[in-house]
């Protein structure tokens, strides 16, 4: 019996991961702010025999997260998927409130999930495969390019990726494996704000399949689709600010031609 905790399980990739992981030998601890949709995820997971425990919770709230994650002890796999994005490439910056909320949910939420989980996992016995536990945190390809209009989102995801990649090196010495998950565009409620054609747009179920397949190899980072990852990494070689200015200018030009 494996114990799995997923945040952001009410929709998008979090829900898709929960559905794929729903089986009689898994206990799923599902958390999200949207109670109605969370109960739906739980109901669908029960169909395939999973035991589910749903918790309506704000991942940005460190104290209640600490309480919830600790109550789920033991934990074999933790997937911190909860995240928000308020605007996109629209030539308009996130407001001060949106900026703070984005950092608090996307970065704070990941830490509020992963930190208590790390503590629990470090105390767990080593499995026969040499692992005490595994943690996947949801970053994004946005971690590698700062997009004007979504700079707080990209900053939060860059922070998540950086934290995970660095922390993973020490955690694996304890037998805990941390993975930064960097998807491209996935058709989820979050990407509804994107007003541009999304290259390589993928269904949540496909993203979940890729993530779960690659997690088995315990990598430090999972990034897909690879073309977008290559483009993002190449963009990183250009002078700072250049890709962002190009994107902003390109957008302004498209606006004028509309």
């Amino acid at each position: 019996m494996k114990s799995i905790l997923i945040t952001g399980a009410a929709s998008g990739i979090g829900r898709a991961l929960a559905l794929r992981l729903a089986s009689p030998d898994h206990v799923l601890h599902l958390g999200d702010l949207n109670g109605e949709a969370l109960r739906q995820t739980a109901a669908l997971c029960q169909v395939t025999g999973a035991r589910t425990m749903a918790r309506v919770i704000d991942v940005g709230d460190a104290q209640s997260m600490e309480g919830w994650v600790s109550s789920c002890d033991p934990l074999d796999l933790v997937l911190a998927c909860a995240g928000v994005q308020y605007t996109s490439l629209v030539g308009e910056a996130e407001t001060a409130g949106e900026t703070r909320r984005t950092i608090s949910v996307n970065l704070g939420g990941v830490l509020n999930t992963a930190l208590p989980a790390l503590e629990i996992m470090a105390r767990q016995p080593l499995s026969e495969t040499g692992m005490r536990g595994q943690i996947g945190v949801m970053a994004s390809q946005g971690a590698f390019v700062s997009v004007p209009g979504a700079s707080a989102y990209c900053a939060s995801k860059a922070a998540v990726d950086n934290w995970a990649v660095g922390r993973a090196a020490l955690a694996r010495r304890q037998g805990v494996f941390i993975t930064s998950i960097c998807p491209g565009y996935v058709r989820t409620p979050m990407t509804t704000v994107n007003a541009f054609p999304m290259h390589g747009l993928m269904e949540p179920d496909e993203a979940a399949r890729i993530i779960l397949t690659r997690l088995k190899k315990r990598p430090v980072r999972i990034a897909f689709p690879w073309r977008m990852y290559a483009a993002a990494r190449f963009g990183g070689l250009l002078p700072a600010g250049f890709p962002a200015r190009m994107l902003a200018r390109n957008y302004a030009r498209q606006q004028r031609s509309r």
């Binding site: 929709s11 989820t188 979050m190 509804t192 704000v193 007003a195």
Partner: peptide, 21 residues
């Protein structure tokens, strides 16, 4: 799968961005 996730997007209460094609 696409119709299902597009429907989930629509009912999420998030403003749909105007799409350009």
């Amino acid at each position: 799968r696409a119709v299902w996730s597009a429907t989930e997007q629509l009912i999420s209460g998030r403003a749909m961005a105007p799409r350009r094609t």
